[in-house]
């Protein structure tokens, strides 16, 4: 399989400068190795610190149990599932897995195919919600941008759907997605959708932010 690689830029929080990164349209073994040997130990030490401080489990990072080896193995070779990864400074900074079999629920796009963002996770050291200042910013947005671009490329006109972990609800509202409320059929997580119009506005904002 040929992996498409695009050059993107992330913000180095400490220096305020930009860092060149690769957006790759696949999750390869190198990314899984990074998850296993770098993300997991980093997350484990954060969880131990949270436990030591007595932080209740419902305030822990809600993706702490995600296993990217299993997630990617389950969809290996299936056309309906796609992966994206962001690589910078020699290591994986973010991962996303996409499902292309889902349909829209929002009134204006009900029943129309969309890109469903099944999982999105950034490296523990880039997460502002885990107590420390993130190293790099823009990883999550880069992955969302890739998902919306894929929706355009597939002819889905930017339509995007996802179930959000509660800690990420505000992020998805901030980027202009419609909150369709809690989904009783999916662990009561809130379901968000981006319409074609919202996708256009999202791209315009991204372009304006870059210039």
């Amino acid at each position: 399989m040929t992996v498409d690689v695009s050059k993107i830029y992330l913000l180095d929080v400490a220096s305020g400068g930009s860092v060149e990164a690769e957006l790759r349209d696949a999750i390869e073994q190198a990314q899984l190795n990074d998850w296993q040997t770098k993300w997991r130990p980093a997350l484990l030490s954060i969880l131990q610190e949270l436990a030591r401080k007595g932080v209740p489990m419902d305030q822990w990072p809600q993706s702490w149990h995600w296993d990217w080896n299993k997630k990617t193995a389950r969809v290996q070779g299936l056309l309906a599932f796609r992966g994206f990864s962001v690589v910078a400074l020699g290591e994986t900074q973010g991962l996303a897995q996409i499902d292309l079999t889902k349909m829209g629920r929002e009134a204006n796009q009900r029943g129309k195919p969309l890109v469903y963002l099944d999982y999105l996770e950034v490296a523990p050291w880039n997460r502002p919600d885990l107590g420390n200042a993130p190293r790099l910013r823009g990883v999550g947005t880069a992955l969302i941008t890739a998902a919306v671009a894929l929706s355009e490329d597939e002819g889905f006109k930017g339509r995007l759907g996802l179930h959000s972990l509660p800690q990420a609800d505000n992020f998805y509202r901030k980027i202009g997605m419609t909150d369709l409320g809690q989904d009783a059929a999916y662990q009561n997580l809130r379901y968000f959708e981006m319409t074609s119009e919202q996708a256009r506005a999202f791209f315009e904002k991204e372009e304006n932010d870059e210039t």
């Binding site: 299936l78 056309l79 309906a80 292309l100 079999t101 195919p113 597939e154």
Partner: peptide, 9 residues
């Protein structure tokens, strides 16, 4: 393309 994906899945 969508039909092919769904059929394969």
């Amino acid at each position: 393309r969508q039909a092919l994906r769904l059929y394969q899945t």
